[in-house]
Every structure is written in structure tokens, then in C-alpha cells.
């Protein structure tokens, strides 16, 4: 029987970590773009558009990410579309991230006082101009800490994609365990790697919050 050194285990896990990082980045960037679009729909002046965005957000916030992954993976298969695991994983995570980011950002936009909307409106700006030049620059300052904080949830969310067979850090952990029969060592390392990814993110979220001094600005 082959003996596995700790380095063997760690090396294999680190190789899989690349996919966790890539999937996190794709989800976060893609989710950010879709989320921005959703944000605009969510605060649109047309009611039907607002309702659509709210339903979308509530649907994705109100169901487990795992179910969303299953539906993306198996559901599309029912229509004869063969969905590879990476595509289902990326798609579900992007849509899930978008729902949460849109809602976080909506809170930030609504934190900007009504007077800013009224002043810019009475200067003749249209809604998009108000958003672009007056509201978003202020809202973004408030949005940075919670957005960076949420990226931690995205990184941890990628672990669920192991269930549909996408080989990232968690799935690699299972595979390595099956070969080495050392579950405690392997999953301990997996947990440490996740921690090494997430801790700097939550730390920087805290630092940004202090640096942007959110509570004492724009009162």
C-alpha cells in the first residue's frame, strides 16, 4: 500500500484550491455585474420592473444555494442541455451572489438622504445621471465594507459545488481522504486553507470600514 506524506496531501489540496479561487472570482465578478443590473431594476421608477427584481432576489435568498446548484445541474439536463459541472457551478453562484449583492447595495443607495435626489433632480438631472454622478459615488463608499465582507460567503459557498462533482478544494478533500484514509488530517488542512482565504478578506473588510469611517460621513 502506498504511503502518503503530509506534503503529498497538501500539494493535492493546494492544486484544487486554484479552482476554488477561480470559481470565487468568477462568481464575485459575474455576480457583481448581474447584481448591479438588478440594483437598477430594483430601484427603477417602473413598478413592474421593481417587482420582478424583488421576486428574483427573494427567490434566490429564500432557497438554499444547494438547491440552486441541483436545479442548474440537473434541471437544465431535462431540456436536453448537457451542463458540465463547472458551468452549473459558475452559473448558480453568479446568480446567487447577484441577488445578495443587489440587496446589500440597495440598502447603501437608500442610505443616501432624499435631499441628494431632490437637489440633483431640481438641477435638471435625469435618473441615470443622478445615480451616476451623485448617488452611486456616495453609496459606493458605504458599500465597500459589506461587499468585501460578503465575498467571504462566496468563497465558502463554492464548497457546495463539490456535490455536483466540481473538483475544487472540498471535493479534492473527499478524494484525497478516500485514498489516504486520514479524514481528520485532510479535512483539517482543507479547513485551514479556507481560513487562509477568508480571514484576510474579513480583516480587510474591517479595516476598510474603519478607514472609510462610514458612521461619521455623509450625515
Amino acid at each position: 500500500m502506498t504511503e502518503f506524506t503530509l506534503w503529498d496531501i497538501l500539494r493535492n489540496l493546494l492544486l484544487a484550491t486554484r479552482w476554488t479561487i477561480l470559481l470565487s472570482l468568477v462568481s464575485f465578478v459575474g455576480g457583481g455585474l448581474v447584481g448591479l443590473l438588478l440594483l437598477f431594476l430594483r430601484i427603477s421608477s417602473r413598478k413592474a420592473v421593481r417587482v420582478f427584481a424583488r421576486c428574483y432576489i427573494e427567490l434566490f435568498q429564500g432557497t438554499p444555494l444547494l438547491m440552486q446548484l441541483f436545479i442548474a445541474f440537473f434541471g437544465l439536463g431535462l431540456f436536453g442541455i448537457d451542463v458540465p459541472a463547472w458551468l452549473a457551478a459558475g452559473l448558480a453562484l453568479i446568480l446567487w451572489t447577484a441577488a445578495f449583492l443587489a440587496e446589500i447595495w440597495r440598502g447603501c443607495v437608500e442610505a443616501i438622504t432624499k435631499g441628494q435626489w431632490e437637489a440633483s433632480a431640481s438641477l435638471g438631472m435625469g435618473r441615470l445621471q443622478q445615480m451616476r454622478y451623485v448617488i452611486l459615488p456616495q453609496a459606493m463608499k458605504i458599500a465597500v465594507p459589506p461587499t468585501v465582507g460578503f465575498s467571504v460567503q462566496v468563497v465558502k459557498g463554492t464548497a457546495l459545488t463539490s456535490i455536483i462533482g466540481f473538483v475544487e478544494l472540498s471535493k479534492a478533500g473527499t478524494v484525497v481522504t478516500n485514498a489516504t484514509f486520514q479524514p481528520f488530517t485532510v479535512y483539517g488542512l482543507v479547513a485551514l486553507i479556507y481560513f487562509a482565504l477568508c480571514w484576510p478578506l474579513s480583516k480587510s473588510s474591517q479595516m476598510l470600514e474603519r478607514k472609510l469611517n462610514v458612521a461619521h460621513r455623509n450625515h
Binding site: Q116, A119, S120, L123, Y133, Q138
Partner: peptide, 28 residues
């Protein structure tokens, strides 16, 4: 018609100059 408010409603992220310039460049 221009409007001036009780709470001033200046744009806090722009300088004084920026406040006066913005709507001219964006709207006009």
C-alpha cells in the same frame, strides 16, 4: 427654475467648485 433647500443638500463627495460645475457639464 432653480431651487434652494433648507438642508442645503450640497453633494458631500464633491468640492465646492465640483458642486457648482457638475450639473452644468452633465445637464447642459
Amino acid at each position: 427654475v432653480g431651487m434652494i433647500f433648507q438642508q442645503f443638500n450640497l453633494f458631500p463627495h464633491l468640492t465646492v467648485g465640483g458642486n457648482v460645475i457638475l450639473s452644468q457639464t452633465v445637464v447642459k
